[in-house]
Structure formats: structure tokens, C-alpha cells
């Protein structure tokens, strides 16, 4: 694991800010440009520290797979935010040419092998990628991201068993935001109902299971980094439970064409009437928290932090503008046979 020097810490902060600002632009698009985003988007606000802390451990050749809640990863990996926004807007220059949309971002050139919109189904795929890494024998690892809810999907169990058995170089990063849409973990998970961390599930696979504060990018970096080091040495997989709070609703409202879409309030409020829970989460927002910490420890001057914020702001302005101006794909492109079959 690499030491986190000041440059690296500032880089991490910058990525967190970029993800946050990007997600806010996505959210605002529903109001500023109604109808531009269709379908279902899922935001990563609140999970920036977890994403960046995890991805900061990646070495060249490492790979990752994720879920429909996927905007944050390619941003931190360096994929052009213009092309990500254009994809979400369904435009021709989008990262996936407008074929995939918000839930299906993929950038293999940067090791981002893709996502599944179906809960849990990316887990075996990431496991397969880790087998590939093992076969290559170059000490590379795969990060497999999924939600807390996905751990009740059979694919989770099958995958972790196999990864442990074959000592595959993978770190399973469970982003536990304590909700599956509007269901709270203790309503659907026997461990949560018992007041236990979900990382205890790892014991069923004789695999280490660790729980980390996903709002603290350094803690995540150290935890995921230790797990990745272990995997690189051929010692097998680890389950990391990264506790985050999603600061937006699960996704935008679900409605048929013609009904304007928007983001409702968080389910803590809309389903459970628990505004205090949500406000407490806002008070612990990882982005300002990390900024304050870096400023306090002298790693980041406040003026520099403001500059970064300004740069990020401009970057996202440009991404939105680019995506709005970008043309839609030709309708006939839908029939591209070379995309149906390679």
C-alpha cells in the first residue's frame, strides 16, 4: 500500500468533490432541463469517500465492477465527465453511445468492466474477472462493488464461496447504506436484525470480513488497501463492509413517459418520517468532513480548496453544456448488428 502524501490526499479530495458535483448536476438536470434524463438514475452522493478511498488503492491493470449506482467510479478513474454526462443524457458522444444510459456505464480501457442493473449479478462477474487476474499472474486485483441488499442475492453466496475456495484476488466492497430502495436492512437481513455488522457474513466463507466507516476515505483506503495487498499476495478475497449514507433518494421517481421526473426526498423521510436520521447524515457529510480534516492537518490550504471547487464547478458546467449540445444518435443505429453480436 502506497503512503498517502499530501498530493495524493488532495487528489482524493478532488475526486470526491468531482463526484459530488457531478451527481448534483445530474439531479439538477431534472429541474433545469426536464425530459433530458429518462429512465432511472441512482446517485452516489454520500458514498464519495468510499468510492475514492477504494479506487485509490488500484494499481495498473486492476479492474472493477459495480452496480447501477455507477457514476462515481469512472469519474475517479479519469473517464471524461463530458462523455459520462452525454451518456446519461442519451447522446451520441456518450460513453456507451447512448445505448446504456445511467445504469450501464462501462470503460474497459480504465479497468471499469461494467455494471449490472440486476441486483447482485455483478458479483459473480467480478469474481470471474478476478479469476482472469489470477490466471494472468501479475498480482492484479479486482474490486467488486455492490450494495447491502445484494448480499441477500444467491449470487453473493455462490461467488464468495468460490472466491475463497480458489483464493481469487478480489476485494468485495459492500457499500452498506442501510437501505434497499425504501426497505431498511434490519427488515430484510438477519444479521442487521440482530444488530450485527454485515461483514460477519464473511465467516461463512472462511474469509476475513471487515467493517469500515465509508465516510472516511483514509480509513477506506487503508482497509481496502490491506485487503488488496492480501489478494495480490495470493491469499485470497476479503469482504469489506463500507458504511455509507446515501444523501439522495434511491433514484428519481418511477413514472411512465410524459410524467416529469424528479428526485423525491430520502426514504428515511418519505417512508419512515424520520427527518432526524437524514439530517444527522447531512451533518456528517463526508465531503466537507474530509476538506476540514485536510485543512486542519495542513495538507490543503483553504484557498486551494476553493480553487479546486471552482475548477470542478467549471468542469461540470462544461460537461452539462457538452451533453446538452451533443446530438442524439441516429435512430437506425439501434439496429446495429455488430452491437448485438460481436
Amino acid at each position: 500500500m502506497q503512503e498517502l502524501d499530501n498530493d495524493r490526499l488532495v487528489w482524493m479530495f478532488t475526486q470526491m468533490l468531482r463526484i459530488r458535483e457531478f451527481e448534483e448536476r445530474v439531479k439538477r438536470t431534472f429541474e433545469d432541463h426536464p425530459g433530458v434524463i429518462r429512465g432511472h438514475t441512482h446517485l452516489a452522493d454520500g458514498a464519495e469517500a468510499s468510492i475514492v478511498g477504494s479506487l485509490a488503492t488500484m494499481a495498473p491493470g486492476d479492474q472493477l465492477m459495480a452496480t447501477y449506482r455507477c457514476h462515481g467510479y469512472p469519474i475517479a478513474l479519469g473517464t471524461d465527465t463530458k462523455s459520462i454526462m452525454a451518456e446519461i443524457y442519451g447522446r451520441k458522444s456518450g460513453l456507451c453511445g447512448g445505448y446504456g444510459g445511467s445504469m450501464h456505464l462501462v470503460d474497459p480501457s480504465r479497468g471499469f468492466l461494467g455494471t449490472s442493473g440486476i441486483v447482485g449479478q455483478g458479483i459473480p462477474q467480478a469474481t470471474g474477472a478476478a479469476w482472469g487476474a489470477q490466471l494472468r499472474g501479475q498480482g492484479q486485483v479486482v474490486l467488486g462493488f455492490f450494495g447491502d441488499g445484494a448480499s441477500k442475492q444467491g449470487a453473493f453466496h455462490e461467488s464468495l464461496n468460490l472466491a475463497s475456495l480458489w483464493k481469487l484476488p478480489i476485494v468485495y466492497v459492500m457499500e452498506n447504506n442501510n437501505y434497499n430502495v425504501s426497505t431498511r436492512s434490519e427488515q430484510e437481513d438477519a444479521n442487521a436484525a440482530n444488530g450485527e455488522p454485515l461483514s460477519v457474513k464473511a465467516a461463512a466463507y472462511s474469509m476475513p470480513g471487515v467493517t469500515v466507516d465509508g465516510g472516511d476515505p483514509i480509513a477506506v483506503y487503508e482497509t481496502v488497501g490491506a485487503a488488496a495487498d492480501r489478494a495480490r499476495k495470493g491469499e485470497g478475497p476479503t469482504l469489506v463492509e463500507s458504511k455509507v449514507y446515501r444523501l439522495s433518494a434511491h433514484g428519481n421517481i418511477i413514472a411512465p413517459p410524459g410524467v416529469p421526473l424528479h428526485y423525491p426526498e430520502h426514504e428515511a423521510i418519505t417512508t419512515f418520517g424520520n427527518r432526524e436520521e437524514y439530517e444527522a447524515a447531512l451533518r456528517g457529510d463526508p465531503v466537507p468532513r474530509f476538506r476540514a480534516r485536510l485543512v486542519e492537518q495542513g495538507a490543503l490550504a483553504p484557498e486551494r480548496a476553493d480553487e479546486i471547487a471552482q475548477e470542478v464547478h467549471e468542469e461540470m458546467d462544461a460537461a452539462v453544456k457538452f451533453a446538452l449540445d451533443d446530438p442524439y444518435p441516429e435512430p437506425e443505429a439501434a439496429a446495429r448488428a455488430d452491437f448485438v453480436y460481436a
Partner: peptide
């Protein structure tokens, strides 16, 4: 529908 996976972008989706 055409024999393709439904694409995301609106004009392509309508085409299918």
C-alpha cells in the same frame, strides 16, 4: 420489437 436489446437513448428506443 427489433431483435436487439432495448437501447437507452430515446430516438433509438422508439426505433426499436
Amino acid at each position: 420489437a427489433l431483435d436487439v436489446t432495448v437501447p437507452y437513448s430515446e430516438p433509438m428506443e422508439a426505433f426499436v
